[in-house]
């Protein structure tokens, strides 16, 4: 087996191990219902983490996604509740706004050679600030369309597949296609592999960079919409710190933070592992919620040390060339 698959295989094994350990301890832990709920409850995080995967694959980082989620949810709520738009009109506007936001960040990064960390940090402040300016209060949404979307779905094996789960599947299918069956996907990996070489090979650097951050922000906006449906409200303080969860999911999913190596499906597994830990803690009853943070932190630590260990397979060679 090629060394580049090892991290994602480890992630998959870890997921199964957690599932088995949990089901030995608690009956009903590994039931389809729990698993499908994992998908539903984490759909917005998974969509956000997908965008983050592409950013990290390219060797960048996007700290703004949590704030973009908040801004989208507030924007969506205002358009629907205060201006009486139909959600189907509001959603495209929100997505386009998200895309434009990402495109501007990408352009700043590319044109002025600014570090993604600091640009997206400014983006994080800006989006959160704009959301706060738009509305400091939480805006509840009462539009009937929200109920019908939330009620849509069907049950499988005792679990529920709702619209969020379906969207998640579609978005990840899109992510897989983008990563492995389009030129842009290759360009993103190329940028993370070695940006100097990528430029010499004719990779359109500006277009790729802008696309990456546009994609990340658009997916963050989409996850904001999912979040708005999930909570039936728009609130400027939602999604605080969620960018960290998204980064953690990507790392646990086996993507190398230096860029160039990693898989979309790994990220989905990473989100599921984080969800499983939460589920396990809630099954456990006596453990408090802050254990989640400690567990996830330790898991991220274990993964990066593990990645250092096996990077003999690819990381060091990359440095040599």
């Amino acid at each position: 087996m090629s060394a580049r698959f090892i991290p994602v295989v480890v992630t998959a094994v870890l997921f199964l191990a957690l599932l088995i350990a949990g089901s030995l301890q608690f009956s009903g832990f590994a039931s389809p219902r729990v698993l499908l709920n994992l998908l539903t409850d984490n759909s917005f995080l998974a969509i956000m983490a997908l965008g983050m995967t592409f950013v990290i694959l390219s060797g960048g980082i996007d700290l703004s996604v949590g704030s973009v989620l908040a801004l989208s949810s507030v924007l969506c709520a205002i358009l629907v509740e205060k201006h009486g738009w139909h959600p189907l009109q509001a959603i495209p506007v929100v997505l386009i706004a998200g895309a434009a936001f990402g495109a501007i960040m990408g352009a700043l990064i590319h044109v002025y050679k600014l570090q993604p960390f600091i640009v997206t940090l400014a983006g994080m402040f800006f989006a959160r600030g704009l959301a706060t300016v738009l509305s400091e209060q939480s805006i509840p949404i009462t539009h009937s369309f929200f109920d019908s979307v939330n009620n849509f779905g069907f049950s499988v094996l005792g679990g529920w597949i709702g619209s969020a789960t379906l969207l998640l599947i579609v978005v990840f299918a899109f992510g897989l296609w983008l990563a492995h069956f389009t030129r842009l996907g290759g360009y993103i990996y190329a940028l993370g592999g070695n940006s100097t070489s990528a430029a010499l090979l004719g990779v359109p650097m500006g277009l790729t960079t802008i696309s990456i951050y546009t994609l990340s922000s658009t997916l963050a906006a989409l996850s904001g919409i999912v979040y708005t449906f999930y909570t039936a409200s728009g609130y400027a303080l939602s999604g605080v710190g969620m960018e960290l969860d998204a980064i953690a999911a990507v790392v646990i999913g086996g993507t190398l933070l230096t860029g160039g190596y990693g898989y979309v499906l790994g990220t989905l597994l990473g989100v599921m592992i984080m969800g499983l830990i939460q589920t396990w803690i809630s099954f456990h009853g006596s453990l408090n919620s802050w254990w989640t943070k400690i567990f996830i932190g330790s898991l991220v630590l274990a993964f990066i040390i593990f990645q250092r260990g096996i990077s003999a397979g690819f990381g060091t060679k990359k440095a040599k060339i």
Partner: peptide, 13 residues
């Protein structure tokens, strides 16, 4: 970024 992210996430826990 990653090394200190660990404590950033776990520290508050």
């Amino acid at each position: 970024i990653v090394a200190t992210l660990v404590l950033m996430v776990a520290g508050r826990g």
